[in-house]
Amino acid sequence: MLMVLASSGSEATPPTGPATAETRWPAYLAAAARGDQSALASLYDESSSLVHGVVQRILMNPADAEEVTLDVYTQIWRSAADYSPQRGSATAWILMLARSRALDRLRSRQRRTGQETPIDPGLPLASSAAQPEELASLGQQRRHMKLALATLADEQREAIELAYYGGLSHSELAEKLGQPLGTVKTRIRLGMTKLRQLLTAGKEVR
């Protein structure tokens, strides 16, 4: 029986100076765009727990989540040169890419099986194995977002989470929630406005 693990050959040197994901990840992307494989390895080490968590939350299926996470980083490798800071932060670029790939897989699975969102009871809800760099630079963002979401009205939070993690359009949301289109749209708009205010205030306090 095989019970073996692998370790990769080369390790990356992080770009010197920058101390947070906001500054390190764009540098990794720029290096990856030049063909630096170790930069992609470093980006993976620092971001994969976050990316895999999002993908897993959307797909609720470990095997699918692993394949999509692998695809996400392969796509990052192939299209790192497309990233431009003018289009948002590197973190946002990576996370939106991960969300998009996971939703593609979710829709494809739903078309195949006709199911909405199969739940795997064995799905680990959280991992203690996140990288320390990630914990240091991203843990605070996680706490702020969770606090901010908790302050939203339940119906706003529900609409936003279904739209983001379920990939439901506002018309699908309206049908699922049994609410008029305009109501659903207003809930999302107000919720996002409040999130922006709360997170901006959090940044200023920090």
Partner: peptide, 10 residues
């Protein structure tokens, strides 16, 4: 909004 998901090491 991704930060609302629990991190999960692949």
């Amino acid at each position: 909004l991704s930060f609302a998901a629990e991190p999960a090491a692949p």
